[in-house]
Design a binder for these strands. Structure first.
Lengths: 205, 205
DNA sequence: TGACAATGTTACCGATCGGTACGTATACAT
DNA sequence: ATGTATACGTACCGATCGGTAACATTGTCA
């Protein structure tokens, strides 16, 4: 991702206390609304209204609504890998424990009453057209997830690391979706246990 | 689902050869467009244009766009269980083979170049609001799927049938989503193999 | 103080959104 | 032939969509 002219890079450009606080407020509000109610469902008018600013402020910081959505997803991406890396860092050198920690966390998140699934997954569903700014970010996130899972499956000594890594990804995506579909007590609650069973069955004997 | 005032029940009401064919064309076109590009992404104008009819024709057969979307999903639901029951009927009395057959089929479907995921899942993502006509149909479909999978898991002698059933559901939903995210060669291709591993690890020893 | 750049505001654009009032065409029964 | 019911089309509605032109305000420099 070589070109990135978005707000997250220009938010404090020099002057110590010159505040483009509007851009931050806009992104914060857009993040919340896009995640909770969907990107297509939210109009720019509602975003600027809730952010307490006006439309031109939005369009001076973001070239378009689609790019604002992409910025939201880039923010989501950062926080996503933060959570992932926390689980990894908690169990150095033990990929199986890392996965277990991450999936336990995912399982818990999916049981929260306001859980709305994975922002990345949802965006890809909302924008099937290849090349859409939001979808590009989403696809990159998922490719990275697949890559990491396959590597961890190899590190934990799976017979077929690619299959196990992909199996874990299927369980994770299933948890994201069924978390928002079934709510509390849904199948997503069992993602960690099922992943553990799958891992156990996939290791070299 | 006791009340159902929609077109599928009134499409041939008496006169042998004088049905409102407009309604069928509308539903067919809506099915295709809603599935391929998303419900929110498609306006009623495009539907009637592609169907070769006019807007009042649509609103005479369907009370609203939301209800048209619900009708599309009811149609999707019927075809869904048709496919499911075919896999079941192919292996009478052998739930494990039934699941295997269904998941092999799902895996193949997800690898088709124009695959766009599960219409039910996608609709639930597009409409997070509880009670939305489209979401109601989608949730019912998923509840039924969960129920059937848990029953089949019990029938095949799982140690913890509910956990295995839910695990299979997670894999299936993961396949639906990653099928449209990764396309050909994505993780969804391995859904049947991973399900088999999970089943093997979940049976009573 | 004056100049400049950045940010904010008012008011508006054409296009499209879901939905409808109302007139027309066709078929059948009387 | 003429009523009656049904299906379909023309033309339109207000609201909202994403986006912008022109102007006012602000803070930071010299």
């Amino acid at each position: 991702m070589p070109t990135d002219k978005n707000i997250e890079l220009t938010i404090n450009h020099g002057h110590a206390a010159s505040p483009p606080k509007a851009a931050k407020k806009i992104l914060d509000v857009a993040y919340d609304l896009f995640y909770r109610r969907g990107i297509r469902a939210i109009g720019v008018d509602e975003i600027v209204k809730r952010a307490g600013v006006t439309k031109p402020s939005l369009y001076r910081s973001f070239p378009s609504k689609d790019e604002l959505a992409a910025s939201y997803l880039r923010q989501y991406d950062r926080e996503y890998w933060e959570r992932f890396d926390e689980a990894v860092a908690a169990h150095p050198g033990d990929p199986r424990a890392q996965i277990s920690a991450f999936l336990t966390r995912v399982g818990k998140r999916t049981q929260r009453p306001d859980y709305r699934g994975c922002g990345m997954t949802n965006a890809a569903v909302e924008y099937p057209e290849h090349g859409h700014p939001a979808r590009v970010v989403s696809e990159a996130n998922k490719q990275e997830l697949r890559h990491r899972l396959r590597e961890m499956a190899a590190a934990m000594g799976a017979q077929d690391p690619d299959t196990l890594g992909d199996g874990l990804l299927l369980l994770i995506e299933g948890a994201y979706i069924s978390g928002q579909l079934f709510g509390l007590g849904g199948p997503a609650a069992s993602v960690a246990r099922n992943a553990d069973l799958l891992i156990e069955a996939s290791l070299k004997k």
